[in-house]
Structure formats: structure tokens, C-alpha cells
Design a protein around this nucleic acid. Structure first.
Lengths: 153, 153
DNA sequence: AATCTTGTTGAGAATCAATCGCAATAAGCG
DNA sequence: CGCTTATTGCGATTGATTCTCAACAAGATT
């Protein structure tokens, strides 16, 4: 992981009267070792497998800190589950999600980003983060389209 | 409520070998009487206040059906909560969500919609529905910005 | 209209994510 | 080093959602 990230986080903590603990650092390290979306359960499992002696509660407690520090974002997950993704030093991207096979396509479009900022301005809204998910059928599934599929929503 | 909606739903059910029950119809009616976002708890409370003898489980069971039938959409709610909104015969819109005060702003932008379709085409993706949520600070909260606010994320 | 099949309901138990309370611990200050 | 107080871990708790299962009833068949 990047030394820079750790420093950014420590700085965020101190600035807000919070403490830099080995637990928080260890969790952050794993978050940035995971190059995909994940939920707290997965993260906790990884930490446990690595024998770090960190409680689930601490993991739950740390995630909002990472988010507030701008290092991690929370994206829409399955029903009643919160999904995270680290973001520091990464390109922002949006998702297409195939409702049939579950395939995820990541994309990024500059025009789209700019247009959103423009729209926000119209409403006096200060965007910090956005999440666009387009649901539909991927190329493959559109081809073998069956009506009335029973995929989960 | 619209007779047309009820017919659309009944048709969806029959097409998939499911049954049209008074419970499902009553729930659907309330969903379309509610002209705003809601969660299952609210919906259930309303049904109870109206003395309809419908169980919470049935409400939970019905929601995904409405979604699959294309009458209702699920949008991102607070942590661990699912929020719904009826959509049939309504203009599609997206949301801005103030992370500090929780205010929701609905907006719609034609250019944005068209741009998305265009992007999908590039990926051979067939969009059916999309959900864009822009998180940030509303006009008011941006003004009285305190650093390190403790709002939940 | 009576019968049959099978999807649906209600009630409560069960599950699962997330949070909380509290005593023990330790970060960071002087 | 010693003090203050944020943080930890544990277990209990909350709260939303799902499950189980027996009773019921929708819709097809006769």
C-alpha cells in the first residue's frame, strides 16, 4: 500500500481529535490491498485469516472514518448490505450491471461527469460523490433473451 | 389509483404463474397512494392503520414483485434500509442526497439521459433502468459547513 | 358449483448486518 | 512517566429482512 494513504488518514484523524491506532492502520492496509468491491464481512474474514487480532466492531467502526477521510466510498450493494471500495488514487468509475448474469462493467465518461457537475450547480448542490448504476442486459444476455426470466432483484 | 396499474400487475403475475390476491392488490394500492419514497415499515404502518389485515411478511414479499413488474423501483436508502418509490406513469428522475441533513432533491435532465444511452451503446449494453444518486451538501448545509461534522455516512 | 392442485398467507421464529454498553487498554499530551 | 480520554474487544442488543410451516384460497378442471 501507499505510504501516502496512511499519512493522509493519520492526518485526517489527528485533525479531528481521533487517534492513530494499529487496528485502524491494519484495516486500512487491507482495504487498499483489495482491488474490488467488498463488504465488511469479507474484510473481517481476511483480517481474521491473517491472524490480526481485530474485532468485527472495530472494522465496522473504521469504515465510516475511511469514507469521511475521502479514501473509500460506499456504493449500493445487495439488499441490506453495505459495499465499499477504496478510491484514493483510483479513477472514479460508474457501473453497468447485467440483471441476468450479474456481470459488472466499469466505465468512465468525462462528458457525463461534467454534465453532472453542471446540473448540480443549477440546484445549488455541492456534489461530493456520485453513484450511477445502469441496470440492463449485457451484450451476451441481450442476444439470448428469454422473456420472464426469474433473476433476482 | 389507476385501473391500468392493477391490470398491468395482474397480467405480470399471471404470466409468471403467480396469483392475484386481495393482499397484493391492497399493498399495490397503498404504494400508488404514496407519492414519495418510503420503506417497508412505513408502508406496513399505513396498512395497519387502515385495518387491512395484512402481515408484514406479505408486504416484504410483495415489493420485489412490484419491482420486477416494473411498477416500482428500489433506490438507495439509509444504512441497511431499502427504500422504494412507485414509478409507473411517472417521469423518471434521479436524486441528489444531502449527506448532512438528509434532504433529497429530485431532478431530471434530458441531456443526461441521452448521454447514458449513448455510453451504453458503446459497450453493447442494453439499459433497462438506471439509478443515479449524487451525494453531497445541499445549498443550506454547504453554507453552514462545519469541518468534521459527525453526520452518518 | 364441487374438487383439486399448488401458490400464498399469517405468525412467530430465525437470521444477518450493524450498533451499543462497558470495562480494560493504550495513544498522545505535558 | 503519568494523566486524560479515545479506542478496543466482547457480548448483548437492535432492527430489518427472510424463513418455516400449517391453514387457506386462487384458479384450473370437471
Amino acid at each position: 500500500m501507499n505510504r501516502e494513504i496512511e499519512r493522509a488518514f493519520s492526518s485526517y484523524l489527528r485533525k479531528n481529535g481521533m487517534r492513530v491506532t494499529p487496528e485502524r492502520k491494519a484495516i486500512l492496509r487491507e482495504v487498499f490491498a483489495l482491488h474490488r468491491h467488498f463488504d465488511v464481512e469479507e474484510l473481517f474474514d481476511i483480517l481474521r485469516r491473517k491472524k490480526t487480532r481485530i474485532s468485527q466492531a472495530s472494522v465496522y467502526r473504521s469504515m465510516p472514518l475511511f469514507v469521511k477521510a475521502g479514501l473509500v466510498i460506499r456504493t449500493a450493494g445487495a439488499v441490506g448490505k453495505v459495499v465499499y471500495e477504496h478510491v484514493y488514487g483510483h479513477e472514479h468509475h460508474d457501473h453497468m450491471f447485467c440483471v441476468k448474469c450479474g456481470k459488472q462493467i466499469e466505465f468512465n465518461d468525462d462528458k457525463l461527469e461534467k454534465l453532472q457537475v453542471e446540473i448540480c450547480r443549477k440546484y445549488g448542490f455541492n456534489p461530493e460523490y456520485h453513484n450511477l448504476e445502469i441496470d440492463g442486459l449485457c451484450k451476451n444476455c441481450a442476444k439470448n433473451k428469454r422473456t420472464g426470466g426469474k433473476y433476482e432483484i
